[in-house]
Design a protein around this nucleic acid. Structure first.
Length: 599
RNA sequence: GGUCCGGUAGCUCAGCUGGAUAGAGCAUCAGCCUUCUAAGCUGAGGGUCAUUGGUUCGAAUCCAAUCCGGAUCACCA
């Protein structure tokens, strides 16, 4: 990589002038040169000035002179400005990079690490459909998985389904009471939505019943417990745990409806999973691990038989792992699942994509596993992301104040259509092509919108303000890509011409600034991808793709490709745009976003 | 109250392993389509980087304190 080369060269030069000192590559600070100055990359001289007790400008001159005369193939010019050594990289370096990689479909792909990584994402409850907040989770997990895979790891995409508990029983009770046997087929509603509707219905009835009890003089807290519909749900949960056939069958039927609905949504979102875990299967394993922990003395029992771990020495609290009646809690299941995952795949790293409200829970989970001496503890990484909220506050499925994921997708695709028609760009497509295009634009905009921000930041989404299709958006990048494809079509070139196509190319003219800017960006892609993986941050790729598309648009505006000044420039630019399109596709596909050839 | 996270332009955000005059997009204003797609390009205005202090050649970036916002600290999941 170029910055690394520059650092190595700088070290060699410093070593040449100061043989008594030792210099390391890490000590050299290389930045992109600010646009006001001439040059491409800048070495900051101050650290060495201090160390060598020399004048910055003299040192800069010395180094610049040395680099340009000893590595003329890389450096063609330098300029020293108040402690900064600005280096101009030779056109040949970039053209060489271009010729070697313009037709390389795996440009930037990392070396095989031999590491096995699991990314768990989505992890829905089965009592309601997916909402807008889940989308952030799903897109993050899917994109991160792709990035980790592309940087050389073996990837397992996992989904942990929370398919048991009181919340599911609520939907079941309401369905039993009010649905008259309605099914997704008979009602003509997607299964997850049908079940979600009864979940909301439950809470409506629940509220009315509480109000009734309170009106009759009952304490509110007590009323919440005593409401008949809640009693019924709790009774159902006990029956479920006891293996009651009727309840179990209903549970399976309704979960089945939800899975059918999820499948449709996942397909549309373009995501998939290699391994499904179900909490109804893992909570028992959790219990057995807790038993082991008791034997080891890591855990302890209280008088009521409940099992705890004491984390006060780590600055946390005591944490419950089993209730007094022996039933498991959330943490019990997660302990079980973590061990199960590790045993299933021998993971080096296990990434959990979970909202930041569970930071504490994840911290405790890791600590418990560490204390129990479970080998899976080490690889646990919580990719924590901020919740997506509405201007009115949190999205609450219970109260039906959510932006539904399916509705959101429809809305985005509808917007894509509206915009396309408004711009008069819907001509020359078949109906199927248009449908596919709207899907690509709408889904792309949605994904990019949720991925471009640092995951840590919480976001407030106002449904009334639609997602923009201009500026820092997927649409912008898709448009740049479509422009490139259009040029290639007119030149009768495929997206990926044969490798030999530009074999005869030799550079004799210098690069313009906008040509060079694209090559500078292209050169950085492997490093950017690596950074995205290290920082576990897909947003890095969003920024990169946008910047590359922007460089292309500027270049496109300044230079003609098909009518270039001469054949040499034409060939150069064709190679450049082919590699640009390829790199845009690589970056965006990793994010789960497709780029159209025409729009 | 303890712990964790955030606070950068009117709005949404980059930049944070210390480097030059803090960058994008949206919005506002002014230009650019008989020439490869104007969903684009060029330019202008817009900043006490929450506040205060410290560290040093140099701080949006590191440290400390304070202020504001959020999450969490359940025998819910």
């Amino acid at each position: 990589m170029l910055t690394h080369l520059i650092k190595e060269s700088a070290v060699a030069a410093l070593q040449h002038f100061y043989p008594d000192q030792t210099f390391t590559v890490d000590a050299v600070n290389v930045n992109e040169t600010k646009v006001e100055f001439s040059g491409d990359y800048t070495i900051v001289l101050f650290p060495f000035v201090k160390m060598l007790r020399c004048k910055p400008d003299e040192l800069g001159k010395q180094l610049g002179e040395f680099l340009v005369s000893n590595q003329a193939d890389l450096f063609v010019g330098y300029q020293v400005v108040s402690g900064f050594l600005n280096l101009t990289i030779s056109d040949h370096y970039f053209v060489d990079l271009l010729q070697k990689n313009w037709s390389n479909p795996e440009f930037g792909k990392g070396k095989v690490t031999g590491k096995k990584v699991m990314v768990e994402y989505s992890s829905p409850n089965t009592n309601k459909p997916l909402h807008f907040g889940h989308l952030r989770n799903i897109f993050l997990g899917y994109a991160l998985g792709n990035i980790l895979k592309d940087t050389g790891n073996t990837l397992v995409k996992a989904n942990l389904i929370n398919d048991r508990g009181i919340h599911i029983c609520k939907s079941m009770v309401a369905w039993k009471r009010y649905a008259n046997g309605a099914t997704p087929q008979s009602a003509g509603i997607k299964g997850d939505h049908l079940v979600g509707d009864y979940y909301v219905h439950f809470n409506d009835v629940y509220k009315v019943e509480i109000a009734g009890l309170v009106a009759n003089g009952m304490d509110e807290k007590l009323a919440e417990k005593e409401a008949p519909i809640m009693q019924e749900a709790q009774q159902m949960l006990r029956q479920w745990e006891a293996g009651d056939k009727e309840v179990y069958d209903l549970w399976q039927t309704m979960n089945g409806w939800v899975y059918d609905g999820f499948k449709v949504s996942y397909d549309r979102l373009g995501v998939d999973f290699d391994k499904m875990y179900y909490e109804s299967n893992t909570y028992l394993l959790g219990k057995s691990i807790v038993e082991k922990g008791l034997e080891k003395g890591v855990l302890f029992k209280k008088e009521d038989n409940s099992v705890w771990i004491d984390l006060t020495a780590d600055g946390l609290d005591q944490k419950l792992l089993l209730r007094g009646d022996g039933t498991s809690v959330y943490m019990t299941q997660d302990v079980g699942t973590a061990v199960l995952k590790y045993n299933d795949f021998g993971l080096d790293q296990s990434v959990y994509v979970i909202a930041d409200e569970q930071n504490y829970h994840m911290q405790v989970l890791k600590l418990i596993l560490e204390k129990m001496g479970e080998p899976c503890a080490n690889g646990i990484f919580h990719l924590s992301y901020g919740m997506v909220e509405l201007p009115t506050g949190k999205m609450k499925s219970r109260e039906g104040t959510v932006v539904d994921a399916d509705d959101m997708m429809d809305e985005m695709v509808r917007m894509a259509q509206e915009q396309t028609e408004e711009n008069g760009k819907a001509d020359g497509f078949s109906a199927e092509e248009l449908a596919a295009l709207y899907q690509m634009i709408g889904m792309g905009a949605l994904k990019f919108y949720l991925l471009r921000v640092d995951p840590k930041k919480r976001m407030i989404f106002d449904p009334k303000e639609s997602i923009d299709l201009h500026g820092f958006t997927a649409t912008f990048i898709q448009y740049a890509h479509a422009r490139i494809c259009s040029i290639l079509r007119k030149e009768h070139l495929p997206l990926m011409p044969s490798e030999q196509h530009f074999d005869a190319f030799v550079l004799s003219q210098s690069l313009s600034q906008s040509e060079k800017n694209i090559l500078l960006s292209l050169e950085q892609f492997p490093q950017v991808l690596q950074n995205a993986a290290e920082e576990m941050s897909p947003s890095v790729l969003c920024n990169y793709a946008f910047q590359l598309a922007q460089s292309f648009n500027t270049f496109y505006d300044q230079h003609s490709i098909s009518k270039a000044e001469n054949e040499e420039k034409k060939q150069l630019r064709l190679m450049m745009i082919i590699m640009t399109a390829q790199t845009l596709r690589r970056a965006m596909n990793l994010l789960g976003i497709d780029l159209p050839e025409k729009m």
